[in-house]
């Protein structure tokens, strides 16, 4: 394969290990946050507001004297869930639409493509705003809204990849060999379509968290004072010039998780090709 891979190889194990560690820690934090901190994410101490990072408050404290580190840890569950569920919703819709579009004939392709376009033609945020106006603000409506808003993007890519996979030598060979379409779909087209978009999925998790944060900025996202990275990022923006730590750490959490997930996704992808 490419020079890039050969060069990367000695490092990839260390890198992968790091990614696994980061993601493992995230899952642990999501399941059992008490392992990392003994403080309460909603513990209000007005007298200790706006403390900069220090021993005892590694990430400082927020406007109500809550420990930012503790809130980031407890926020893992909500944020990962938003990211994962929204991406799952978006992807499931996209796989169906993308495959229908790619394989179910011209008419279906036309209809599915138009459906994707209808979703596309709605700016995602507007779709989300309308949905939240219908369902009320909160984590779940925001999650579903973000899922819906991201689906058409994935659908497009999946359709493209599926067409490429269908045109590949293997696929043509399998047609020549008389393999049943379902088998071809399952053994060949699905994996060959999904592997290349795996890193998109992992990147999408970070994106979904960011979109949910935008909904918080517009006042329709996670309900306070629930610790959620996007909501924390938004709340901290108000105090950006006096208390940078309130936005820096939740922001870093989004980026680190997105990065670890993406890097791992890519590594898996590369192994599958060998």
């Amino acid at each position: 394969m490419s020079r890039w891979l050969t060069w990367r190889h000695p490092w990839s194990r260390v890198g992968d290990l790091l990614c696994v560690l980061v993601l493992g820690a995230c899952v642990l934090a999501a399941v059992w946050p008490g392992v990392f901190t003994s403080l309460h994410p909603l513990g209000v101490h007005p007298a200790q507001a706006f403390l900069p990072p220090q021993w005892g408050h590694l990430f400082g404290t927020d406007e109500s004297g809550r420990d930012v580190f503790t809130r980031v840890i407890y926020g893992t569950r909500t944020s990962l869930r938003i990211g994962a569920v929204a991406t799952a919703i978006g992807m499931s819709l996209a796989v169906v639409l993308g495959f229908v579009s790619a394989f179910a004939g011209k008419v279906s392709d036309f209809l599915a493509s138009r459906l994707v376009e209808v979703l596309f033609a709605f700016p995602g945020l507007v779709l989300a705003l309308l949905f939240v106006a219908l369902a009320g603000p909160g984590v779940w409506p925001a999650t579903i809204a973000v899922g819906l808003a991201t689906a058409p993007g994935y659908a497009r890519i999946i359709r493209g990849q599926a067409l490429i996979a269908a045109r590949s030598g293997y696929a043509r060979q399998s047609v020549l060999l008389g393999q049943r379409p379902a088998a071809r779909l399952w053994h060949h087209l699905l994996p060959n379509t999904l592997w290349p978009v795996l890193s998109l999925v992992t990147l999408g998790i970070g994106q979904a968290i960011v979109w949910a944060a935008a909904l918080s900025y517009l006042g329709v996202g996670a309900v306070p004072p629930a610790p959620e990275w996007g909501a924390m990022l938004n709340a901290g923006r108000t105090y950006m010039d006096t208390a940078w730590w309130m936005t820096f750490f939740p922001g870093a959490a989004v980026v680190v998780v997105a990065a670890a997930a993406t890097a791992l996704g890519r590594s898996l992808q590369q192994r599958s090709r060998k």
């Binding site: 909603l42 513990g43 209000v44 007005p46 109500s64 004072p225 709340a235």
Partner: peptide, 14 residues
Amino acid sequence: IPAEQSLFEQIQAS
């Protein structure tokens, strides 16, 4: 304003 919303959160906690 955000400060007022934070005040409500503090009342909520207390």
